[in-house]
């Protein structure tokens, strides 16, 4: 299955995403931001990094890259699109996902392994509701903002929340002040998803966790010939 990984100026995790997708049996292909051709990809991943230096706001400039028009059309046709960290920020800026991401409550850049509770299994998660995943986070602007987090959850659009190892969601487990501990969401149709944690850094046991495969592996299942 062919998965397009978008490379913007300032992306830094695109090769990790390519390696992880290859490890999981996909056929990843890097797509340059300046192209409007998705090169036959059946799913799209927007990787982490600092596109355009995070100038103005994270993801603000990247949303206007030529490739993003093609990604929006692909998403409109039901194609699966996953944004990781900065990719999540780009998708929110492009209005392909609800809400926005802004500076961490504590102002510090956070990098640590993070427990995540699965809220809405399905297309994007190869794990049952309530399961706890161990996936790293690393970001300075990961505070998710949405004016109706309960409505978002009721609509089944909350993918994962920050939690303790036992699955409890509270302020102590929340690394950045995200509303209702939300770490990842989908669009209303469910084919576009984004999350701040990095599943591509957690697909090999040598690196401490393979739980990332439960998200990235789902990208392969989600792929369609859109």
């Amino acid at each position: 299955m062919r998965v397009g990984v978008i490379q913007f100026p300032g992306s830094c995790d695109e090769r990790d995403a390519v390696r992880a997708l290859s490890h999981l049996g996909a056929e990843p292909v890097l797509l340059w931001h300046g192209t409007a051709d998705l090169d036959g990809a059946e799913a799209i991943v927007l990787p982490g990094g600092f596109t355009y230096g995070d100038y103005l706001r994270t993801g603000a400039i990247a949303q206007f890259a030529p490739v993003m028009g093609a990604v929006a059309d692909f998403a409109e046709r039901g194609g699966p699109v996953l944004g990781i960290c900065n990719g999540f920020q780009v998708l929110c800026e492009a209005r392909l996902l609800p809400g926005a991401l802004t500076r961490n409550e504590g102002l510090r850049f956070i990098h640590r392994r993070q427990a995540l509770r699965v809220e809405t299994p399905g297309t994007w998660l190869d794990a049952p509701a309530g399961a706890v995943l161990d996936i790293p986070v690393k970001h300075g602007e990961g505070r998710y903002v949405h004016d109706d987090p309960d409505g978002l959850a009721a609509a089944g659009q909350v993918l994962v929340r920050y939690c303790h190892a036992d699955g409890t969601v509270d302020d102590d487990a929340n690394p950045n002040g995200s509303v209702a501990g939300i770490a990842g969401v989908t669009n209303a149709a469910g084919n576009v998803a984004g999350l701040m944690p990095h599943p591509e850094h957690a697909v090999e046991a040598l690196l401490g966790s393979t739980d990332g495969a439960k998200i990235l592996g789902a990208v392969l299942r989600a792929g369609v010939g859109a």
Partner: peptide, 8 residues
Amino acid sequence: KLLANPVI
């Protein structure tokens, strides 16, 4: 379109 994100 660019300078402000009307969500926040």
